[in-house]
Design a binder for these strands. Structure first.
Lengths: 317, 317
DNA sequence: AAGATTGCTGTTACCGCTAACAAGATTTAC
DNA sequence: GTAAATCTTGTTAGCGGTAACAGCAATCTT
């Protein structure tokens, strides 16, 4: 494996100049840079990450904590993780994945954390390295998330455009910012259209949503669309309706939220608000690396735009 | 952060002796070791991974390639990944996750690869670092996998014990060792019990299995159990049967294979052959680290035992 | 009892890279 | 025209570890 020294010999300069050509190119004559870069290319130079890390007192490692129960959330985080990992790899960072803060053995340059419960903010705020959270929060940590409000706005508007008479929101029964945002998006669009909001909330389990449909079926008029705060709930609503009447796509509508795996498993496939998981992962990584480089980087809350993915669970006008 | 030098001062030895106490304890007097370890404890010593990596000409990075389309397989690999990552972290390795062999930028100490297609073995065999594959293969690479044969044996035996008259195998239409093993397990148990095997194969999509049920429903007698090569197919079979008759758990049986997410989404939950994904991940990592340490380590093919997870898609005797 | 062997610890050099400083050449200032 | 400022490159030292070797007692041979 070629080192700076090898490049230096071929380009007839000192290895310091090579190092500078990489890290502070503005300090090196263009002429030299040309021959240095061509030597690097010729010798297929790969920087030695360990040496760089040692001298910079960095680790080139990022820790990713998934604090939520992974059995339940499995599909959700895989693409996020890929986004994070591939972005990091580009900058020669690697990853340690942890599902429990207690087995935090080694050291790293920063943290990406997701699935926080209220009690977690306690130790998170004591961390001494840069942190980026995945998911809205009210504690003034940098975060990246889907624009949840916009997501339910898109969904609600679409439902109204398709001509559903009644548009009901099925929320998740948690006091989390993401849930408030999703409810807000729905409420706003309803009010803009002089419609009365109607919200029901359940723990995020499909069978609860299904039970709700079965229990209240007599009061659920045709031409109703359910805007759900998760695909899981949407899945349950859809199942409940199918159980009661096989005519879902025409008489009823269901819109989910997430667009991760479950929407495709449903029959018909769910119309859903798709979160750009891969891009969210990249954004987490990018923001974190920026904070590592510049430790006065101001607080940033980055919201990426979701997309409405039309499936068969809503009528086509 | 304390260094070897700091420990050395406190313990009144040279830093070399401290290094030895860690890596070759048999060369250091017990007396010194005691005071060295207590100094390490006192100063909360953490080895500097970069320094170690530099001097050993290692990277402390493992690459994990997921070559399969991640959209389809998302849930499947998450727990495997957690198993790999947590095991690696214990030994101060970190991870780079790649979904495409071409964006292989940096360097690493070894590879874990999964989702290989036939054409991939070409470049895999040219890799110059230790490799462990996740998944049976016929090319004499070290691998870790579930004992697929045992999985379908468990399933088939269970189906027979529950008294199903007809036990049919629904396979995945690929020429892969894992599929042959699963079919073999089924065939063996059928023959042991003087039953005639009956196998149908489809691409691994639930709707194909569902269509199959609908198309051949007239010939599907009650008291039949379907042993499926994946939860995806089982999910489709179950849906098909539910469409035709709501009495699945009593008149028919469905057993899946994987036990990853999808089995829990089904209603009723699928009886399935559960792969120990977390442990498989750990095993991949362990085997790889062993091969990195000892490059004459002999070829190893490690099969972990699956478990039958009883759900509501089969009758209880 | 002298030389050889063993057991344990310290010294040196180096892994590949970069910050800090040194130093020469060129330009600018007055 | 000379001192100062600027630009560009090289030299040195050190990041935190470990292998290789050196050195010195204690023990073993014969």
């Amino acid at each position: 494996m070629a080192t700076l020294e090898d490049i230096a010999k071929v380009a007839h300069v000192s290895k310091m100049t090579v190092s500078r050509a990489i890290n502070h190119p503005e300090l090196v004559r263009d002429e030299l840079k040309t021959s240095i870069f061509s030597a690097m290319h010729e010798l297929n130079y790969r920087p030695n990450v360990a040496a760089k890390a040692l001298v910079n007192n960095k680790t080139q490692v990022i820790k990713f904590f998934v604090l939520e129960d992974i059995d339940i959330t499995e599909p959700y985080y895989m693409k996020l993780l890929v986004g994070i990992a591939e972005y990091l790899a580009k900058y020669q960072y690697s990853l340690q994945l942890m599902t429990d803060e207690h087995l935090d053995i080694g050291v790293s340059d920063g943290y990406i954390i997701t699935g926080m419960r209220d009690e977690d903010y306690d130790w998170i705020k004591r961390l001494e390295l840069p942190v980026v959270l995945f998911g809205e929060n009210r504690w003034h940590f940098d975060f990246v998330d889907t624009n949840n409000e916009m997501g339910t706005q898109l969904a609600t508007r679409y439902a109204l455009e398709q001509g559903y008479d009644r548009v009901v929101f099925i929320g998740i029964d948690v006091k989390e910012p993401f849930e408030y945002s999703r409810e807000n998006g729905y409420i706003q669009v309803m009010q803009e259209n002089q419609r009365m909001p109607e919200i029901h909330r359940f723990a995020n389990h499909s069978h609860l949503a299904m039970d709700f449909i079965e229990a209240t079926w007599s009061r659920i008029t045709p031409n109703t669309c359910f805007i759900c705060a998760s695909d899981r709930l949407a899945f349950g609503i859809q199942k409940g309706i199918l159980q009661m009447s096989p005519e879902i796509a025409t008489d009823y509508g269901v819109i989910g939220f997430d667009g991760v795996f479950l929407d495709q498993v449903a029959t018909p496939q769910l119309t859903t608000v798709e979160q750009p998981m891969y891009e969210l992962g990249e954004a987490c990584a990018e923001l974190l690396l920026r904070k590592i480089k510049d430790n006065h980087y101001p607080l940033e809350e980055r919201l990426l735009q979701p997309k409405l993915k039309i499936g068969g669970s809503t009528r086509k006008k």
